[in-house]
Design a binder for these strands. Structure first.
Length: 516
RNA sequence: GUCCCGAUCGUCCAGUGGCCUAGGACAUCGCCCUUUCAAGGCGGUAACGCGGGUUCGAAUCCCGUUCGGGAUACCA
Protein backbone atom coordinates (compact mmCIF):
# COMPACT_ATOMS: atom_id res chain seq x y z
CA UNK A 1 0.00 0.00 0.00
CA UNK A 2 2.81 2.38 0.82
CA UNK A 3 4.40 2.25 -2.59
CA UNK A 4 1.41 3.71 -4.36
CA UNK A 5 2.71 5.97 -7.05
CA UNK A 6 0.56 7.73 -9.54
CA UNK A 7 -0.09 4.70 -11.64
CA UNK A 8 -3.23 6.32 -13.08
CA UNK A 9 -6.76 5.02 -12.95
CA UNK A 10 -6.40 3.16 -16.23
CA UNK A 11 -3.51 1.08 -15.00
CA UNK A 12 -5.23 0.31 -11.73
CA UNK A 13 -8.32 -0.85 -13.53
CA UNK A 14 -6.35 -3.00 -15.87
CA UNK A 15 -4.76 -4.80 -12.96
CA UNK A 16 -8.09 -5.36 -11.33
CA UNK A 17 -9.55 -6.60 -14.58
CA UNK A 18 -6.86 -9.17 -15.15
CA UNK A 19 -7.15 -10.39 -11.58
CA UNK A 20 -10.83 -10.92 -12.17
CA UNK A 21 -10.19 -12.90 -15.29
CA UNK A 22 -7.44 -14.99 -13.80
CA UNK A 23 -8.97 -15.99 -10.52
CA UNK A 24 -12.36 -16.66 -12.03
CA UNK A 25 -13.45 -17.49 -8.51
CA UNK A 26 -16.93 -16.50 -7.42
CA UNK A 27 -16.89 -13.92 -4.68
CA UNK A 28 -18.12 -15.11 -1.32
CA UNK A 29 -21.53 -13.78 -0.29
CA UNK A 30 -21.17 -10.07 0.32
CA UNK A 31 -22.82 -7.98 2.98
CA UNK A 32 -23.47 -4.45 1.76
CA UNK A 33 -25.32 -1.63 3.41
CA UNK A 34 -26.87 1.70 2.72
CA UNK A 35 -26.97 4.04 5.67
CA UNK A 36 -29.12 7.12 5.13
CA UNK A 37 -29.88 9.77 7.70
CA UNK A 38 -33.54 10.52 8.37
CA UNK A 39 -33.03 14.25 8.03
CA UNK A 40 -35.65 15.08 5.43
CA UNK A 41 -37.13 13.73 2.22
CA UNK A 42 -35.17 10.70 1.07
CA UNK A 43 -32.39 11.73 -1.26
CA UNK A 44 -31.95 10.30 -4.73
CA UNK A 45 -28.38 9.47 -3.76
CA UNK A 46 -29.70 6.89 -1.31
CA UNK A 47 -31.39 5.01 -4.13
CA UNK A 48 -28.31 5.39 -6.27
CA UNK A 49 -26.13 3.70 -3.64
CA UNK A 50 -28.80 1.11 -2.88
CA UNK A 51 -28.87 0.07 -6.52
CA UNK A 52 -25.22 -0.94 -6.52
CA UNK A 53 -25.32 -2.25 -2.97
CA UNK A 54 -28.16 -4.54 -3.83
CA UNK A 55 -26.75 -5.64 -7.18
CA UNK A 56 -23.52 -6.70 -5.54
CA UNK A 57 -25.29 -8.49 -2.69
CA UNK A 58 -27.50 -10.33 -5.18
CA UNK A 59 -24.67 -11.26 -7.50
CA UNK A 60 -22.69 -12.82 -4.69
CA UNK A 61 -25.67 -14.38 -2.97
CA UNK A 62 -25.18 -12.03 -0.02
CA UNK A 63 -27.31 -9.64 1.97
CA UNK A 64 -28.22 -6.00 1.57
CA UNK A 65 -28.66 -4.14 4.84
CA UNK A 66 -30.38 -0.83 5.59
CA UNK A 67 -29.16 0.99 8.66
CA UNK A 68 -30.61 4.28 9.84
CA UNK A 69 -27.97 6.79 10.91
CA UNK A 70 -29.66 9.07 13.36
CA UNK A 71 -26.81 10.19 15.60
CA UNK A 72 -27.38 13.85 14.83
CA UNK A 73 -30.35 14.45 17.08
CA UNK A 74 -30.75 18.06 15.99
CA UNK A 75 -31.49 17.30 12.37
CA UNK A 76 -34.01 14.50 12.67
CA UNK A 77 -37.17 14.99 10.65
CA UNK A 78 -40.25 13.03 11.70
CA UNK A 79 -41.64 10.76 9.00
CA UNK A 80 -38.43 10.79 7.03
CA UNK A 81 -37.48 7.32 8.17
CA UNK A 82 -40.75 5.83 6.93
CA UNK A 83 -40.27 7.55 3.58
CA UNK A 84 -36.89 5.87 3.23
CA UNK A 85 -38.47 2.44 3.61
CA UNK A 86 -41.29 3.39 1.30
CA UNK A 87 -39.27 4.78 -1.55
CA UNK A 88 -36.74 1.95 -1.57
CA UNK A 89 -39.57 -0.57 -1.69
CA UNK A 90 -41.24 1.41 -4.44
CA UNK A 91 -38.04 1.12 -6.48
CA UNK A 92 -37.79 -2.60 -5.73
CA UNK A 93 -34.48 -1.81 -4.06
CA UNK A 94 -35.61 -2.79 -0.60
CA UNK A 95 -33.12 -4.29 1.88
CA UNK A 96 -32.89 -7.80 3.26
CA UNK A 97 -32.35 -6.52 6.79
CA UNK A 98 -33.56 -3.22 8.23
CA UNK A 99 -35.12 -1.64 11.32
CA UNK A 100 -38.46 -2.67 9.87
CA UNK A 101 -37.55 -6.18 8.75
CA UNK A 102 -35.18 -6.93 11.60
CA UNK A 103 -32.38 -9.43 11.12
CA UNK A 104 -29.57 -11.20 12.95
CA UNK A 105 -27.73 -7.97 13.74
CA UNK A 106 -30.59 -5.93 15.15
CA UNK A 107 -31.09 -3.21 16.12
CA UNK A 108 -30.54 -1.48 12.77
CA UNK A 109 -30.85 2.06 14.02
CA UNK A 110 -27.85 3.84 15.51
CA UNK A 111 -29.82 5.60 18.21
CA UNK A 112 -30.71 2.16 19.55
CA UNK A 113 -27.11 1.01 19.46
CA UNK A 114 -25.63 3.72 21.66
CA UNK A 115 -24.34 1.31 24.27
CA UNK A 116 -22.11 -0.39 21.76
CA UNK A 117 -19.86 2.60 21.11
CA UNK A 118 -18.62 3.64 24.55
CA UNK A 119 -16.49 0.54 25.30
CA UNK A 120 -14.50 1.08 22.14
CA UNK A 121 -13.92 4.70 23.03
CA UNK A 122 -12.59 3.60 26.40
CA UNK A 123 -10.35 1.07 24.74
CA UNK A 124 -8.90 3.67 22.38
CA UNK A 125 -8.40 6.03 25.30
CA UNK A 126 -6.61 3.35 27.29
CA UNK A 127 -4.40 2.43 24.36
CA UNK A 128 -3.37 6.05 23.84
CA UNK A 129 -5.03 6.25 20.42
CA UNK A 130 -7.53 8.80 21.62
CA UNK A 131 -7.58 11.67 24.10
CA UNK A 132 -9.98 14.02 25.82
CA UNK A 133 -10.34 17.54 24.53
CA UNK A 134 -11.92 20.33 26.58
CA UNK A 135 -11.64 23.04 24.00
CA UNK A 136 -14.83 25.06 23.70
CA UNK A 137 -16.55 25.32 20.34
CA UNK A 138 -15.83 29.04 20.50
CA UNK A 139 -12.10 28.42 20.76
CA UNK A 140 -12.22 26.00 17.85
CA UNK A 141 -14.21 28.44 15.73
CA UNK A 142 -11.77 31.24 16.51
CA UNK A 143 -8.85 29.02 15.60
CA UNK A 144 -10.44 28.16 12.28
CA UNK A 145 -11.20 31.78 11.49
CA UNK A 146 -7.73 32.95 12.40
CA UNK A 147 -6.16 30.41 10.06
CA UNK A 148 -8.59 31.14 7.27
CA UNK A 149 -7.87 34.85 7.47
CA UNK A 150 -4.15 34.18 7.40
CA UNK A 151 -4.60 31.78 4.44
CA UNK A 152 -2.69 29.31 6.53
CA UNK A 153 -2.15 25.84 5.16
CA UNK A 154 -2.63 24.56 8.71
CA UNK A 155 -5.84 22.69 9.21
CA UNK A 156 -7.49 20.78 12.00
CA UNK A 157 -7.10 20.75 15.72
CA UNK A 158 -3.92 22.19 17.27
CA UNK A 159 -3.68 19.48 19.97
CA UNK A 160 -3.78 21.94 22.83
CA UNK A 161 -5.39 19.36 25.12
CA UNK A 162 -3.15 16.48 24.14
CA UNK A 163 -1.40 15.09 27.21
CA UNK A 164 -3.16 17.41 29.63
CA UNK A 165 -5.30 16.58 32.61
CA UNK A 166 -8.57 18.37 33.13
CA UNK A 167 -7.01 20.48 35.88
CA UNK A 168 -4.12 21.58 33.72
CA UNK A 169 -6.39 22.42 30.83
CA UNK A 170 -8.91 24.31 32.93
CA UNK A 171 -6.35 27.00 33.66
CA UNK A 172 -6.13 27.89 29.97
CA UNK A 173 -8.71 29.95 28.06
CA UNK A 174 -11.42 28.38 25.89
CA UNK A 175 -12.14 25.64 28.37
CA UNK A 176 -15.34 23.65 28.37
CA UNK A 177 -16.54 21.45 31.24
CA UNK A 178 -17.75 18.60 29.03
CA UNK A 179 -15.00 17.12 26.89
CA UNK A 180 -15.08 15.38 23.55
CA UNK A 181 -12.84 12.49 22.59
CA UNK A 182 -10.47 12.87 19.67
CA UNK A 183 -8.45 10.40 17.65
CA UNK A 184 -4.71 10.88 17.93
CA UNK A 185 -3.62 10.66 14.32
CA UNK A 186 -0.07 9.26 14.14
CA UNK A 187 2.55 10.83 11.90
CA UNK A 188 2.86 7.71 9.82
CA UNK A 189 -0.86 7.35 9.16
CA UNK A 190 -1.51 5.35 6.00
CA UNK A 191 -3.10 7.59 3.39
CA UNK A 192 -3.47 5.20 0.50
CA UNK A 193 -6.08 2.53 0.11
CA UNK A 194 -7.59 0.33 -2.54
CA UNK A 195 -10.95 1.30 -3.93
CA UNK A 196 -13.13 -1.16 -5.82
CA UNK A 197 -13.99 1.47 -8.41
CA UNK A 198 -10.92 3.69 -8.60
CA UNK A 199 -8.10 1.32 -7.85
CA UNK A 200 -5.35 2.74 -5.66
CA UNK A 201 -6.42 6.01 -4.12
CA UNK A 202 -4.64 8.53 -1.95
CA UNK A 203 -6.55 10.59 0.59
CA UNK A 204 -5.79 13.80 2.46
CA UNK A 205 -4.02 13.62 5.80
CA UNK A 206 -6.69 13.54 8.55
CA UNK A 207 -6.96 15.79 11.58
CA UNK A 208 -7.49 14.71 15.16
CA UNK A 209 -11.09 13.89 14.46
CA UNK A 210 -13.72 13.97 17.21
CA UNK A 211 -15.19 10.51 17.67
CA UNK A 212 -17.31 11.12 20.75
CA UNK A 213 -19.30 14.32 21.07
CA UNK A 214 -19.86 16.26 24.27
CA UNK A 215 -23.42 14.94 24.42
CA UNK A 216 -22.08 11.40 24.56
CA UNK A 217 -23.16 10.51 21.00
CA UNK A 218 -20.57 9.11 18.65
CA UNK A 219 -19.79 10.97 15.47
CA UNK A 220 -20.36 9.31 12.14
CA UNK A 221 -16.75 8.21 11.91
CA UNK A 222 -16.82 6.09 15.03
CA UNK A 223 -20.36 4.86 14.64
CA UNK A 224 -19.94 3.78 11.04
CA UNK A 225 -16.84 1.74 11.80
CA UNK A 226 -18.23 0.08 14.89
CA UNK A 227 -21.58 -0.69 13.30
CA UNK A 228 -20.17 -1.93 10.04
CA UNK A 229 -17.87 -4.25 11.91
CA UNK A 230 -20.48 -5.49 14.33
CA UNK A 231 -22.94 -6.03 11.49
CA UNK A 232 -20.45 -7.95 9.41
CA UNK A 233 -20.46 -5.46 6.56
CA UNK A 234 -17.67 -6.36 4.13
CA UNK A 235 -18.40 -3.98 1.26
CA UNK A 236 -18.96 -0.30 1.90
CA UNK A 237 -20.55 1.60 -0.98
CA UNK A 238 -20.68 5.35 -0.41
CA UNK A 239 -20.28 8.68 -2.14
CA UNK A 240 -16.98 10.07 -3.29
CA UNK A 241 -17.20 12.74 -0.62
CA UNK A 242 -16.08 10.09 1.88
CA UNK A 243 -12.73 9.40 0.27
CA UNK A 244 -11.15 12.03 2.47
CA UNK A 245 -12.39 10.36 5.66
CA UNK A 246 -11.34 6.85 4.75
CA UNK A 247 -7.88 7.00 6.39
CA UNK A 248 -9.58 7.81 9.70
CA UNK A 249 -11.86 4.84 9.34
CA UNK A 250 -9.00 2.56 8.38
CA UNK A 251 -7.09 3.71 11.44
CA UNK A 252 -10.03 2.85 13.66
CA UNK A 253 -10.24 -0.64 12.16
CA UNK A 254 -6.54 -1.10 12.72
CA UNK A 255 -6.57 0.11 16.33
CA UNK A 256 -9.55 -2.02 17.17
CA UNK A 257 -7.93 -5.02 15.55
CA UNK A 258 -10.67 -5.51 12.99
CA UNK A 259 -10.65 -6.52 9.35
CA UNK A 260 -11.55 -3.46 7.29
CA UNK A 261 -14.22 -3.79 4.62
CA UNK A 262 -13.68 -3.13 0.94
CA UNK A 263 -14.60 0.36 -0.18
CA UNK A 264 -16.40 1.48 -3.31
CA UNK A 265 -16.61 5.26 -3.62
CA UNK A 266 -19.31 6.13 -6.11
CA UNK A 267 -19.09 9.30 -8.21
CA UNK A 268 -21.19 12.19 -6.94
CA UNK A 269 -24.40 13.05 -8.77
CA UNK A 270 -24.32 16.69 -9.91
CA UNK A 271 -26.62 19.61 -10.48
CA UNK A 272 -26.55 21.16 -13.94
CA UNK A 273 -23.92 23.59 -12.67
CA UNK A 274 -21.78 20.57 -11.71
CA UNK A 275 -22.05 21.11 -7.98
CA UNK A 276 -22.98 18.19 -5.74
CA UNK A 277 -26.65 17.44 -6.27
CA UNK A 278 -28.93 19.30 -3.90
CA UNK A 279 -32.66 19.54 -3.32
CA UNK A 280 -32.31 23.28 -3.49
CA UNK A 281 -31.03 23.33 -7.06
CA UNK A 282 -32.62 20.17 -8.39
CA UNK A 283 -36.16 19.04 -7.54
CA UNK A 284 -35.23 15.56 -8.71
CA UNK A 285 -32.83 15.24 -5.79
CA UNK A 286 -35.95 14.31 -3.81
CA UNK A 287 -36.75 10.66 -4.35
CA UNK A 288 -40.46 11.32 -3.77
CA UNK A 289 -40.48 13.74 -6.68
CA UNK A 290 -40.34 10.93 -9.20
CA UNK A 291 -43.42 9.22 -7.87
CA UNK A 292 -45.25 12.52 -7.65
CA UNK A 293 -44.42 13.29 -11.27
CA UNK A 294 -45.64 9.94 -12.55
CA UNK A 295 -42.38 8.16 -13.29
CA UNK A 296 -42.29 4.39 -13.23
CA UNK A 297 -39.96 2.97 -10.59
CA UNK A 298 -38.48 0.50 -13.08
CA UNK A 299 -37.63 3.37 -15.42
CA UNK A 300 -35.97 5.35 -12.64
CA UNK A 301 -33.97 2.33 -11.54
CA UNK A 302 -32.81 1.78 -15.10
CA UNK A 303 -31.92 5.46 -15.43
CA UNK A 304 -29.89 5.50 -12.22
CA UNK A 305 -27.93 2.53 -13.51
CA UNK A 306 -27.14 4.36 -16.76
CA UNK A 307 -25.69 7.23 -14.76
CA UNK A 308 -22.45 5.47 -13.98
CA UNK A 309 -22.53 2.32 -15.96
CA UNK A 310 -22.17 1.35 -19.61
CA UNK A 311 -25.17 -0.03 -21.44
CA UNK A 312 -25.32 -3.77 -22.01
CA UNK A 313 -24.76 -3.12 -25.71
CA UNK A 314 -24.69 -0.04 -27.90
CA UNK A 315 -28.21 1.14 -28.47
CA UNK A 316 -29.65 -1.00 -25.71
CA UNK A 317 -30.42 1.39 -22.91
CA UNK A 318 -33.19 -0.67 -21.39
CA UNK A 319 -32.10 -3.44 -19.11
CA UNK A 320 -33.72 -5.39 -16.32
CA UNK A 321 -32.25 -5.37 -12.84
CA UNK A 322 -31.73 -9.12 -13.08
CA UNK A 323 -29.59 -8.71 -16.17
CA UNK A 324 -27.63 -5.91 -14.55
CA UNK A 325 -26.95 -8.06 -11.49
CA UNK A 326 -25.42 -10.73 -13.68
CA UNK A 327 -22.92 -8.53 -15.49
CA UNK A 328 -22.16 -5.94 -12.83
CA UNK A 329 -18.48 -5.23 -12.08
CA UNK A 330 -17.17 -2.51 -9.78
CA UNK A 331 -14.36 -1.62 -12.14
CA UNK A 332 -16.86 -0.73 -14.88
CA UNK A 333 -18.33 2.16 -12.93
CA UNK A 334 -17.38 5.56 -14.35
CA UNK A 335 -15.47 7.87 -12.06
CA UNK A 336 -16.59 11.23 -13.42
CA UNK A 337 -19.55 12.73 -11.55
CA UNK A 338 -22.55 12.61 -13.88
CA UNK A 339 -24.91 15.55 -14.25
CA UNK A 340 -28.33 14.45 -13.11
CA UNK A 341 -30.44 15.46 -16.09
CA UNK A 342 -33.84 13.77 -16.30
CA UNK A 343 -34.33 14.36 -20.03
CA UNK A 344 -33.27 10.85 -20.86
CA UNK A 345 -35.38 9.50 -18.03
CA UNK A 346 -38.42 11.03 -19.72
CA UNK A 347 -37.70 9.02 -22.82
CA UNK A 348 -36.99 5.88 -20.82
CA UNK A 349 -40.23 6.30 -18.92
CA UNK A 350 -42.12 6.44 -22.21
CA UNK A 351 -40.37 3.28 -23.30
CA UNK A 352 -41.32 1.49 -20.11
CA UNK A 353 -44.88 2.72 -20.38
CA UNK A 354 -45.12 1.33 -23.89
CA UNK A 355 -43.62 -1.96 -22.80
CA UNK A 356 -46.62 -2.50 -20.52
CA UNK A 357 -49.77 -4.08 -21.93
CA UNK A 358 -52.79 -1.80 -21.81
CA UNK A 359 -54.37 -3.57 -18.85
CA UNK A 360 -51.26 -3.28 -16.73
CA UNK A 361 -50.76 0.31 -17.82
CA UNK A 362 -54.35 1.12 -16.87
CA UNK A 363 -53.73 -0.32 -13.42
CA UNK A 364 -50.67 1.87 -12.98
CA UNK A 365 -52.45 4.95 -14.28
CA UNK A 366 -55.42 4.40 -11.98
CA UNK A 367 -53.19 3.77 -9.01
CA UNK A 368 -51.29 6.98 -9.74
CA UNK A 369 -54.42 9.04 -10.40
CA UNK A 370 -55.97 8.09 -7.08
CA UNK A 371 -52.77 8.47 -5.07
CA UNK A 372 -52.02 11.85 -6.58
CA UNK A 373 -55.55 13.15 -6.23
CA UNK A 374 -56.22 13.40 -9.96
CA UNK A 375 -59.20 11.14 -9.35
CA UNK A 376 -61.07 11.12 -6.09
CA UNK A 377 -63.19 8.06 -5.55
CA UNK A 378 -63.73 7.32 -9.25
CA UNK A 379 -66.97 5.71 -10.34
CA UNK A 380 -67.06 2.34 -12.05
CA UNK A 381 -68.04 4.08 -15.25
CA UNK A 382 -65.05 6.41 -15.03
CA UNK A 383 -62.69 3.52 -14.43
CA UNK A 384 -64.16 1.69 -17.42
CA UNK A 385 -63.73 4.76 -19.60
CA UNK A 386 -60.10 5.15 -18.58
CA UNK A 387 -59.43 1.50 -19.33
CA UNK A 388 -61.15 1.82 -22.68
CA UNK A 389 -59.13 4.90 -23.53
CA UNK A 390 -55.78 3.43 -22.57
CA UNK A 391 -54.89 2.11 -26.05
CA UNK A 392 -55.43 5.61 -27.38
CA UNK A 393 -52.98 7.32 -25.06
CA UNK A 394 -50.36 4.65 -24.57
CA UNK A 395 -48.20 5.99 -27.40
CA UNK A 396 -48.70 9.53 -26.20
CA UNK A 397 -47.48 9.27 -22.62
CA UNK A 398 -44.22 10.32 -21.08
CA UNK A 399 -45.51 10.25 -17.51
CA UNK A 400 -48.35 8.42 -15.80
CA UNK A 401 -49.71 11.78 -14.76
CA UNK A 402 -50.56 12.68 -18.35
CA UNK A 403 -53.10 9.91 -18.95
CA UNK A 404 -56.13 11.17 -17.06
CA UNK A 405 -55.88 14.74 -18.38
CA UNK A 406 -55.64 13.41 -21.92
CA UNK A 407 -58.74 11.29 -21.35
CA UNK A 408 -60.71 13.84 -19.37
CA UNK A 409 -63.10 14.38 -22.30
CA UNK A 410 -64.27 10.80 -21.79
CA UNK A 411 -65.07 11.52 -18.17
CA UNK A 412 -67.20 14.67 -18.48
CA UNK A 413 -70.86 14.81 -19.32
CA UNK A 414 -71.80 15.97 -22.81
CA UNK A 415 -73.29 19.17 -21.43
CA UNK A 416 -70.21 19.86 -19.37
CA UNK A 417 -67.62 19.67 -22.14
CA UNK A 418 -65.78 22.94 -22.64
CA UNK A 419 -64.64 23.86 -26.15
CA UNK A 420 -61.14 25.26 -25.96
CA UNK A 421 -61.19 28.86 -27.11
CA UNK A 422 -57.90 28.79 -28.92
CA UNK A 423 -58.80 25.56 -30.69
CA UNK A 424 -62.06 27.08 -31.90
CA UNK A 425 -60.31 30.21 -33.11
CA UNK A 426 -57.85 28.22 -35.19
CA UNK A 427 -60.52 26.29 -37.10
CA UNK A 428 -60.19 26.66 -40.86
CA UNK A 429 -62.84 26.51 -43.59
CA UNK A 430 -66.52 26.69 -42.71
CA UNK A 431 -66.93 24.90 -39.38
CA UNK A 432 -70.70 25.38 -39.32
CA UNK A 433 -71.16 23.69 -42.68
CA UNK A 434 -68.76 20.91 -41.71
CA UNK A 435 -70.63 20.25 -38.50
CA UNK A 436 -73.97 20.17 -40.35
CA UNK A 437 -72.60 17.61 -42.74
CA UNK A 438 -71.06 15.58 -39.92
CA UNK A 439 -74.29 15.62 -37.94
CA UNK A 440 -76.29 14.47 -40.93
CA UNK A 441 -73.80 11.73 -41.67
CA UNK A 442 -73.68 10.40 -38.13
CA UNK A 443 -77.45 10.52 -37.77
CA UNK A 444 -77.56 8.17 -40.71
CA UNK A 445 -75.42 5.60 -38.90
CA UNK A 446 -76.99 2.87 -36.78
CA UNK A 447 -76.67 2.87 -32.99
CA UNK A 448 -74.85 -0.45 -32.95
CA UNK A 449 -71.85 -1.02 -35.11
CA UNK A 450 -70.75 2.54 -34.34
CA UNK A 451 -67.08 1.66 -34.56
CA UNK A 452 -64.02 3.67 -35.53
CA UNK A 453 -63.66 2.21 -38.99
CA UNK A 454 -67.32 2.80 -39.86
CA UNK A 455 -67.25 6.34 -38.50
CA UNK A 456 -64.11 7.19 -40.42
CA UNK A 457 -65.47 5.92 -43.74
CA UNK A 458 -68.79 7.66 -43.26
CA UNK A 459 -67.24 10.98 -42.30
CA UNK A 460 -64.70 10.81 -45.08
CA UNK A 461 -67.36 10.59 -47.74
CA UNK A 462 -70.10 12.48 -45.90
CA UNK A 463 -67.92 15.44 -45.00
CA UNK A 464 -64.59 15.61 -46.80
CA UNK A 465 -65.66 14.32 -50.19
CA UNK A 466 -69.10 15.89 -50.06
CA UNK A 467 -67.69 19.34 -49.27
CA UNK A 468 -64.51 18.85 -51.28
CA UNK A 469 -62.17 19.60 -48.39
CA UNK A 470 -59.07 17.96 -46.98
CA UNK A 471 -59.33 15.66 -43.99
CA UNK A 472 -57.23 17.96 -41.83
CA UNK A 473 -59.71 20.74 -42.44
CA UNK A 474 -62.81 18.59 -42.29
CA UNK A 475 -62.01 16.60 -39.18
CA UNK A 476 -60.76 19.50 -37.07
CA UNK A 477 -64.17 20.93 -36.10
CA UNK A 478 -65.43 17.44 -35.36
CA UNK A 479 -62.44 16.83 -33.11
CA UNK A 480 -63.04 20.07 -31.21
CA UNK A 481 -66.75 19.32 -30.96
CA UNK A 482 -66.24 15.83 -29.61
CA UNK A 483 -63.13 16.23 -27.44
CA UNK A 484 -63.16 19.97 -26.78
CA UNK A 485 -59.65 20.45 -28.19
CA UNK A 486 -57.84 20.48 -31.51
CA UNK A 487 -55.22 18.17 -30.04
CA UNK A 488 -56.64 14.91 -28.81
CA UNK A 489 -56.30 11.15 -28.88
CA UNK A 490 -57.31 9.51 -32.18
CA UNK A 491 -60.71 10.92 -33.15
CA UNK A 492 -62.66 7.95 -34.45
CA UNK A 493 -61.59 5.61 -31.68
CA UNK A 494 -62.56 8.29 -29.20
CA UNK A 495 -65.97 8.59 -30.85
CA UNK A 496 -66.44 4.86 -30.68
CA UNK A 497 -65.86 4.90 -26.92
CA UNK A 498 -68.20 7.86 -26.48
CA UNK A 499 -70.97 6.24 -28.52
CA UNK A 500 -73.30 7.67 -31.15
CA UNK A 501 -75.68 9.50 -28.86
CA UNK A 502 -72.94 11.28 -26.99
CA UNK A 503 -71.14 12.30 -30.18
CA UNK A 504 -74.32 13.72 -31.66
CA UNK A 505 -75.12 15.63 -28.49
CA UNK A 506 -71.66 17.15 -28.34
CA UNK A 507 -71.57 18.11 -31.99
CA UNK A 508 -75.03 19.71 -31.80
CA UNK A 509 -73.97 21.73 -28.78
CA UNK A 510 -70.83 22.85 -30.55
CA UNK A 511 -72.78 23.78 -33.68
CA UNK A 512 -75.21 25.78 -31.56
CA UNK A 513 -72.39 27.56 -29.81
CA UNK A 514 -70.76 28.53 -33.10
CA UNK A 515 -74.10 29.74 -34.46
CA UNK A 516 -74.99 31.67 -31.30
C1' G B 1 -5.42 28.76 1.40
C1' U B 2 -4.23 23.31 1.88
C1' C B 3 -5.09 18.24 0.61
C1' C B 4 -7.66 14.76 -2.42
C1' C B 5 -10.65 13.20 -6.69
C1' G B 6 -11.93 13.97 -11.71
C1' A B 7 -11.81 15.68 -17.18
C1' U B 8 -14.54 12.51 -24.80
C1' C B 9 -20.68 15.69 -28.47
C1' G B 10 -25.66 20.11 -24.78
C1' U B 11 -26.47 15.39 -21.42
C1' C B 12 -25.40 9.98 -20.24
C1' C B 13 -22.11 6.26 -21.82
C1' A B 14 -18.21 3.42 -25.52
C1' G B 15 -12.94 3.85 -26.19
C1' U B 16 -7.42 0.16 -21.93
C1' G B 17 -1.27 2.62 -28.09
C1' G B 18 -2.65 1.37 -34.64
C1' C B 19 -9.54 -1.34 -36.03
C1' C B 20 -10.86 6.48 -34.42
C1' U B 21 -11.40 10.98 -40.91
C1' A B 22 -13.79 9.00 -32.36
C1' G B 23 -19.06 4.87 -31.80
C1' G B 24 -24.14 4.52 -29.36
C1' A B 25 -28.32 6.69 -26.63
C1' C B 26 -31.16 11.07 -25.14
C1' A B 27 -31.99 16.01 -26.56
C1' U B 28 -31.94 19.09 -31.01
C1' C B 29 -32.69 19.91 -36.51
C1' G B 30 -34.64 17.91 -41.30
C1' C B 31 -37.44 14.26 -44.12
C1' C B 32 -41.09 10.11 -44.29
C1' C B 33 -45.69 8.22 -42.22
C1' U B 34 -50.29 10.93 -40.81
C1' U B 35 -57.42 13.32 -39.31
C1' U B 36 -54.59 16.54 -34.52
C1' C B 37 -50.80 15.26 -31.05
C1' A B 38 -47.74 11.39 -30.40
C1' A B 39 -45.31 6.81 -31.43
C1' G B 40 -42.34 4.76 -35.32
C1' G B 41 -38.71 4.90 -39.58
C1' C B 42 -34.62 7.45 -42.15
C1' G B 43 -30.92 11.25 -42.16
C1' G B 44 -28.06 15.67 -40.27
C1' U B 45 -25.46 19.07 -36.62
C1' A B 46 -22.41 18.19 -32.49
C1' A B 47 -16.83 16.28 -28.39
C1' C B 48 -11.10 14.06 -27.11
C1' G B 49 -9.65 21.61 -22.33
C1' C B 50 -4.38 23.35 -23.24
C1' G B 51 1.05 22.59 -23.52
C1' G B 52 5.05 19.50 -23.45
C1' G B 53 7.09 14.69 -23.63
C1' U B 54 7.42 8.88 -24.59
C1' U B 55 6.51 6.21 -29.33
C1' C B 56 7.15 4.57 -36.13
C1' G B 57 2.12 5.82 -34.18
C1' A B 58 -1.57 8.84 -28.51
C1' A B 59 -8.48 10.23 -27.03
C1' U B 60 -5.65 6.21 -24.82
C1' C B 61 0.92 6.25 -21.29
C1' C B 62 4.04 10.24 -18.44
C1' C B 63 4.76 15.42 -16.73
C1' G B 64 2.93 20.22 -16.30
C1' U B 65 -1.07 23.52 -16.70
C1' U B 66 -6.20 24.92 -16.82
C1' C B 67 -10.95 23.95 -15.41
C1' G B 68 -14.63 21.35 -12.40
C1' G B 69 -15.78 18.90 -7.91
C1' G B 70 -15.07 17.17 -2.88
C1' A B 71 -12.92 17.50 2.00
C1' U B 72 -10.98 20.70 5.44
C1' A B 73 -17.44 20.41 11.70
C1' C B 74 -18.87 18.17 18.64
C1' C B 75 -23.35 17.10 9.98
C1' A B 76 -23.76 12.89 7.71
Amino acid sequence: MTGVHSAGPGAARRIQYSVLIMTDAPHSPARTRVAPSPTGDPHVGTAYMALFDKAWARQTGGRFVLRIEDTDRNRLVPGSEEQIYETLDWLALGPDESPLLGGPYAPYKQSERLDSYRPYVDQLLADGHAYYCWCSQERLAALRKERADAHSPETGYDRLCLGMTKEERSKLPGFSETPVVRMRIPDDVELGFHDLIRGDVRAPRPDDQVILKADGFPTYHLAVVVDDHLMGIDTVVRGEEWISSTPKHLLLYKWLGWQAPQFAHMPLLRNTDKSKISKRKNPAARLMWFREQGYLPEALRNFLQLLAYPTIAEGEEMESFESFIQRFRWSDISTGGPVFDVTKLDWLNGQYIRSLDVGALADRVLEYAVASGQLTDPSEAAVARIRAGMPLVRERLTLLSEAVPKLSFLLVEDAGLAFDEDSVAKLKGDPAAILDAALATLEGLPEDGFDAETIQQALKSGVCEALGIKPRVGFAPIRVGVTGNRVSPPLFESMEILGRASCLARLRRFADQLAG
